[in-house]
C-alpha cells in the first residue's frame, strides 16, 4: 500500500522545469522547407570544362517575398577554396570597384547586369601529371546574395542575412559530363506540363517523381587509382523542396528517386515544389512546379 502510494506520488511529480524555454530539435525548420530566401542549386553549363573554355553559370534562388538584391559571383582555384567556397575580399562589397578591382577579387559576375561566366584558366592543369589531368581539377564558383535592404549599417550586419553557396566546376583534359536531363515532373505518376499548376487535395499524400531523359544517367570511363580504365555509371540523387506541406523524403537516390509529400490541410494554399537532380560528378538540373490546394 505504502509502496503504491509513494510510487504514485512520485510519478505525479515527474516534470521538466522550464520545459518550454528552449526550442526542441523537432521545432527547427526542415531542410526541404523553402519558404524564405534560399539558394537551392547552382548549375554550370557544361559542368566539365577544358582549359580555356567558358561556361555559363546560373543559380536557383527561392525568394518568395523578393528580399534578395544583388548576387555577386566569385571564382577561385581549388587551392584558394576553403570549406566555405571562395573567400571573397570584403572590400568588394563596398565602394565603387573598377573592373580590374573586381577581376583581381575573383568576381566572375554580378546580377543583375553581369551574368556570371566561368572561364577555365589555360594553365590550370599544367602542374598535374597526365593521369591527374584526366581526373580533373575542381574550380570553385561562389554565389553571394545580398539582402535588398539592411546592409546600410555595417555594424548590424547579420551573416544570416546573406545567402552564400558554392559549386565546383571540373576542369579536365577531356570533357565528358553533361547536366542530367529531366523530361518532366510526375505527381502520382501523372506527368505535369511546364507551367501547369497542380491542384491537390488538402491533407492528402502525393508521390512526387521525375522522369529522366534517356541519357540522363551517363556511363563514362574512369582511370582508377591502379591506373586502369573502368566503365562507370552515374548514381544521381534528388533533393526535394517545397514551400509548404510536408516533404517526407528530402533526399532520394536512383533508382528510388520518388518522394512523398503531404499537402497542407487548408484550402486555397499556393506553393511550389522544386526537385534538384545531381549526377554526383558536378552535373545539376532542376524543375520547379507550382501547386495549389483545392
Amino acid at each position: 500500500m505504502i509502496l503504491r502510494f509513494v510510487s504514485s506520488a512520485l510519478l505525479l511529480t515527474s516534470c521538466v522545469i522550464q520545459s518550454e524555454r528552449y526550442p526542441r530539435p523537432r521545432d527547427l525548420d526542415p531542410s526541404w522547407l523553402a519558404d524564405r530566401p534560399r539558394l537551392l542549386a547552382i548549375q554550370v553549363e557544361p559542368p566539365d570544362l577544358l582549359p580555356g573554355e567558358t561556361a555559363e553559370v546560373r543559380a536557383l534562388f527561392v525568394d518568395p517575398d523578393d528580399e534578395l538584391g544583388t548576387v555577386i559571383w566569385f571564382g577561385c582555384s581549388d587551392e584558394e577554396t576553403t570549406s566555405f567556397g571562395c573567400a571573397p575580399d570584403p572590400s568588394v562589397l563596398g565602394g565603387d570597384p573598377t573592373p580590374e578591382d573586381l577581376d583581381a577579387a575573383g568576381v566572375i559576375g554580378i546580377e543583375p547586369g553581369l551574368p556570371p561566366r566561368v572561364t577555365a584558366p589555360e594553365d590550370y592543369l599544367d602542374s598535374l601529371d597526365e593521369r591527374s589531368a584526366l581526373r580533373g581539377r575542381p574550380y570553385t564558383v561562389t554565389a553571394l546574395a545580398l539582402p535588398r535592404e539592411g546592409l546600410e549599417d555595417d555594424e548590424s550586419l547579420d551573416f544570416n542575412q546573406l545567402r552564400v553557396g558554392f559549386k565546383r566546376a571540373m576542369i579536365t583534359t577531356r570533357e565528358t559530363n553533361q547536366n542530367p536531363g529531366i523530361v518532366r515532373f510526375l505527381v502520382d505518376s501523372h506527368p505535369i506540363e511546364a507551367g501547369q499548376t497542380v491542384l491537390v487535395d488538402p491533407g492528402e499524400i502525393y508521390e512526387l517523381d521525375v522522369e529522366l531523359a534517356e541519357d540522363a544517367i551517363e556511363t563514362y570511363d574512369y582511370l582508377n587509382a591502379d591506373g586502369e580504365w573502368e566503365e562507370r555509371e552515374e548514381q544521381p540523387f534528388a533533393e526535394w523542396y517545397a514551400s509548404g506541406g510536408q516533404v517526407r523524403r528530402a533526399t532520394t537516390i536512383h533508382p528510388f528517386l520518388y518522394s512523398r509529400w503531404l499537402a497542407p490541410a487548408a484550402s486555397d494554399i499556393e506553393g511550389r515544389w522544386w526537385v534538384v537532380l545531381k549526377d554526383r560528378r558536378g552535373g545539376i538540373s532542376w524543375v520547379e512546379v507550382p501547386w495549389r490546394t483545392r
Partner: peptide, 10 residues
C-alpha cells in the same frame, strides 16, 4: 553563427 551551402554535396 551561420552556414554556407555546398551545392555539390547538398
Amino acid at each position: 553563427n551561420a552556414g554556407v551551402f555546398d551545392v555539390d554535396g547538398g
